[in-house]
């Protein structure tokens, strides 16, 4: 195209360059600069204020020796794996149900998606109330006569992360459903017809033909869910504040607390660098598959 072949001069396209200044600033100063700065200072022993006293990997050793960080990582792994599996499975199942040419599709979709419009704070507070042991689900089930029923995730440190998972799934599966539905709608109608002529039952068509065809949608969704998992913060703050004790701590909260409450910037920087690392582990293989590898048809 002709537009990309202009001679490169500083004042050529000046207006476009001016218009791009915010983007260039964001990309270079905030995203690249900020990241480099944080990683750089994670090797210092900054406390209340950042200062350039290098201590090598000390912050990291300390990080991985802190029980609260270890619990955060463990929580993140449990929460991450389960939320990946459940949101993909539930999201896909709901999308497949909605894709059966049903009536009131818009109504159902609106209902499944509305939690996604709510903030994590609102989500966390609602589920905090629903799971309240004195008045919530547990109390209601017990009042129905099943007096030994026990479901008290928010005050039981061994299952608290599942309480958070329930809330997160309620909030987020609608989005996955929408992405999956868009993927299902993108599949050539003729494929379904061919499968019907071949006499392949619906569930087998989904399992052996449609789902393999939706691989790109699944991968994209996976990346979205995964990078949201690493960020989980507001939900925990609102629902449990990390409690009981430190049972529901997550890395993002660790970072925030060490930076702004514990006045231990170095720990915060080291922890956030670890978060960055985990995102890279998720993103790089995906980016390679999506953009680096051979083009899919």
């Amino acid at each position: 195209m002709s537009k990309s072949e202009r001679p490169s001069q500083l004042f050529r396209n000046l207006n476009a360059k001016i218009a791009s200044i915010p983007m260039i600033f964001t990309a270079l100063v905030i995203f690249v600069g900020g990241t480099v700065w944080t990683v750089f200072y994670s090797f210092t022993n900054s406390k209340l204020l950042p200062r350039l006293h290098f201590v090598g990997l000390d912050q990291y050793y300390r990080l991985w020796a802190t029980p609260r960080w270890l619990i955060s990582i463990e929580n993140l792994l449990i929460y991450g794996v389960l939320s990946l599996v459940f949101s993909l499975v539930i999201g896909f199942l709901l999308a497949a149900l909605l894709d059966q040419k049903i009536r009131f599709e818009d109504t159902f979709r609106t209902i499944f998606l509305y939690p996604f419009a709510l903030s994590f704070i609102v989500t966390g507070l609602v589920w905090q109330w629903l799971l309240n042991p004195e008045f919530g689900v547990q109390a209601v089930v017990r009042s129905l006569g099943w007096t030994s029923f026990s479901f008290n995730p928010l005050y039981d440190s061994s299952i608290v992360i599942y309480g958070i998972l329930i809330a997160a799934l309620w909030q987020g599966t609608g989005l996955i459903m929408c992405l999956m539905l868009a993927g299902l709608r993108g599949i050539d109608e003729d494929i379904w017809k061919a499968a019907r002529v071949d006499g392949i039952p619906t569930w087998k068509t989904y399992l052996f033909i449609i789902i393999p065809m939706m691989r790109p949608v699944f991968i994209t969704t996976l990346v979205i869910v995964a990078s949201n998992i690493v960020r989980v913060y507001d939900l925990v703050v609102a629902q449990t504040s990390g409690g009981p004790g430190i049972a529901s701590e997550v890395p993002a909260k660790y970072v925030y607390d060490y930076m702004f409450f514990a006045q231990n910037l170095g720990q915060g920087f080291a922890a956030s660098t670890m978060m960055l690392l985990s995102v890279i582990i998720v993103i790089v293989p995906w980016a390679y598959l999506e953009f680096g590898g051979k083009k899919r048809v």
Partner: peptide, 16 residues
């Protein structure tokens, strides 16, 4: 850079 940057956890850029 901008698009890749969107995947960086905010916690990394908060303090700068």
């Amino acid at each position: 850079i901008l698009i890749v940057g969107a995947f960086i956890p905010y916690q990394v850029m908060i303090y700068p």
